[in-house]
Simulated assay, not measured.
Amino acid sequence: MTHYPAFNAPCANDAYDGAPDLDQEAEEVARLVKELDGPHRPEYYGPVTTAERREVILRLAAVHDRRWWRSRTEADGQLAESAAFALQQFDRLHPEEVAGPIGPDSIEWDAPGGTRAYVRSEYWTWRNVPPGCGPCDPHDPCEWHQR
């Protein structure tokens, strides 16, 4: 696996491999953002959970990061950085929701491009690791970690 920056964070190709089409995902995330709060949220959904809010913030940050990788424009880069920073800030306030192996306060994310590398690490984990699967006992790994 290729890494970026110089620690165990997936590169964009690895993080977004198998991800939904960017334009379709952007539309879906825009719909989810509308549903989070206010009149667009169906009543039968109940109150927004922290996990729901985090998923939308993560997916939005990933959409912006993917857009930058496609366009390489300064405007998309700024949006990607801003969305990545928002995810890191959210995760600092809700550490129980962090899925990846390196938390949002780690110094690894302070490197140039680190906030967006954090998004890729969290997105890859969200898409590939079963919910609730954390570090395992090396002598008794869970089914997923045995692969």
Rank of each mutant, 00 (worst) to 15 (best):
A62W: 05
V56D: 11
L79E: 02
G114T: 15
F90G: 07
H40C: 09
R67K: 05
E81I: 00
H40W: 01
A9T: 15
R92K: 12
D91N: 08
N13V: 08
M1S: 12
R116N: 10
L22K: 10
E96S: 01
Q78A: 01
P42C: 02
D137G: 06
I102G: 09
A61K: 13
A26W: 02
I57V: 12
E122L: 04
G100Y: 01
G77W: 01
V119A: 11
V33N: 11
V63T: 14
F7A: 12
A111K: 11
H3F: 07
A75V: 09
D17V: 10
A86C: 04
E52M: 00
P141A: 04
A26R: 01
Y118H: 13
G113D: 13
H64A: 14
P131M: 06
L79I: 00
E96K: 04
E96H: 04
H64M: 12
F90I: 02
V48S: 08
R53P: 00
H40Q: 06
G38D: 02
P10I: 05
A117I: 10
G46I: 04
G100I: 05
P20N: 11
A80W: 08
L36R: 09
R147C: 07
H3R: 15
R54N: 04
T50I: 02
W68M: 14
G103H: 11
C133G: 01
A61L: 07
W69T: 12
Q88S: 01
R116G: 02
N8S: 13
A6D: 15
R31W: 05
A80S: 07
Y118Q: 11
P135S: 13
E122N: 06
P95F: 03
R92G: 07
F7G: 15
D14L: 03
H145S: 08
N13Q: 02
Y4V: 15
G18M: 06
E81K: 00
E108P: 07
E28T: 10
R31V: 06
A15N: 03
P39H: 09
G113S: 14
R92T: 13
V119W: 08
E74I: 03
E97Y: 06
E108D: 08
W126E: 13
E143I: 14
L36N: 03
P138N: 04
E35Q: 13
L58I: 12
P141T: 12
P104A: 05
E97C: 12
T50G: 03
Q146K: 13
A117P: 08
Q24A: 05
A99Q: 15
E55Y: 05
G132N: 02
P135Q: 12
P130S: 06
S71M: 01
E35W: 03
G134H: 07
E55N: 07
L58F: 08
A83N: 06
P130A: 02
W109H: 15
L36V: 09
L93K: 15
W68S: 13
S82E: 06
F7C: 14
V48Q: 11
A83G: 07
I57L: 10
W126Y: 10
